[in-house]
């Protein structure tokens, strides 16, 4: 299964506005994307399109997360979501 790691760049971590922007983008991608803290079991992965899941994940700036997806377009979707996570969305 294609997967990518990304380091959270937003100052406030993955909640508030950055979480909303990321969840919306994940929801619009053609494949289902999961997110988990790096090193945690695959079973613990959460739906990346769920803002509430992202908030309970509690990823702070500098934390490393793993994104996973399967199917047509998975690689492209993961690449664009990684870019989003590695951008400081609070600065925009």
């Amino acid at each position: 299964m294609p997967e990518r790691t990304a380091t959270i760049a937003s100052r406030s971590g993955l909640h508030a506005r950055p979480a909303a922007i990321f969840a919306e983008a994940a929801g619009e991608s053609p494949v289902e994307v999961t997110i988990a803290m790096a090193g945690s079991p695959t079973d613990d992965a959460l739906d990346a399109a769920s803002i509430l899941s992202l908030m309970t994940l509690g990823a702070a700036k500098g934390d490393v997360v793993v994104l996973r997806a399967e199917g047509d377009g998975a690689d492209a979707a993961l690449d664009s979501l990684v870019t989003l996570l590695e951008t400081d969305l609070d600065a925009e």
Binding site: R17, A19, A20, E24, D47, S50, I51, S53
Partner: peptide
């Protein structure tokens, strides 16, 4: 705006 956007997303949140 930011609060309303986040609240809107919660309404169709998969977890909920």
């Amino acid at each position: 705006k930011a609060v309303l956007e986040a609240t809107a997303l919660m309404a169709k949140d998969t977890m909920l």
